[in-house]
């Protein structure tokens, strides 16, 4: 467990579980003070989620601080290798998939508008396959993964310069089943 995780755990116990903590320790220390009324259970279910570096709980998918919430990785022009800065994201998802055998992911491969459409379908698929290879190597099972290429047909940005092109050369990690 990393230091960050430990700090977060301590914080959670201090803040969220203050009532329980005092309930457990109070009787030993001082019996003369009246026991405080037990507070209602927290409405938000946090069971098992250990914070931004917990890659095994589905809560992480919605926590903006957690790498699991990052589900798009970007590529260089006409390239399909996963750049180093995105490997951590893929390994977080691989960890999640290994821990949640029911999870299913479609890797949607995309290209920018440059080059021909059918070639870009091939390029989008190659990017999807490259992401799939890393997920697979880090513990996701092949039956959890599929690739679909949209080539240049579904741009997220439509200007004709690098600011849009760089956002369109991407693989989107789409969970079709979470658990």
């Amino acid at each position: 467990m990393t230091n960050v995780t430990r700090t977060v755990l301590v914080a959670l116990i201090t803040l969220g579980l203050a009532a329980c903590a005092s309930k457990e320790t109070a009787p030993v220390e001082d019996t003369s003070t009246p026991e405080p009324m037990p507070e209602p259970e927290p409405v938000v279910e946090t069971t098992g989620y250990q914070g931004p570096t917990d890659y095994t709980s589905k809560e992480g998918l919605d926590d903006p601080r957690n790498l699991l919430s990052k589900r798009v990785i970007y590529f260089d022009f006409d390239k399909s290798n996963v750049k180093p800065e995105y490997r951590e994201i893929l390994s977080a998802h691989a960890t999640y998939m290994a821990a949640n055998g029911g999870a299913r992911v479609t890797l949607e491969g995309h290209a920018d508008e440059r080059g021909t459409r059918e070639y870009n379908l091939g390029l989008g698929e190659r990017r999807g396959n490259s992401a799939m290879g890393l997920l697979d190597a880090q513990g996701a099972a092949s039956n959890q993964l599929s690739v679909v290429s949209y080539g240049e047909e579904r741009p997220v940005s439509t200007c004709s310069n690098e600011s849009c092109w760089s956002r369109n050369r991407r693989v989107e990690i789409v969970y079709t089943r979470v658990q």
Binding site: L121, G122, E125
Partner: peptide, 9 residues
């Protein structure tokens, strides 16, 4: 036609 059923086009 182009098919990538074997893994690449």
């Amino acid at each position: 036609l182009t098919l990538s059923r074997t893994g690449n086009p």
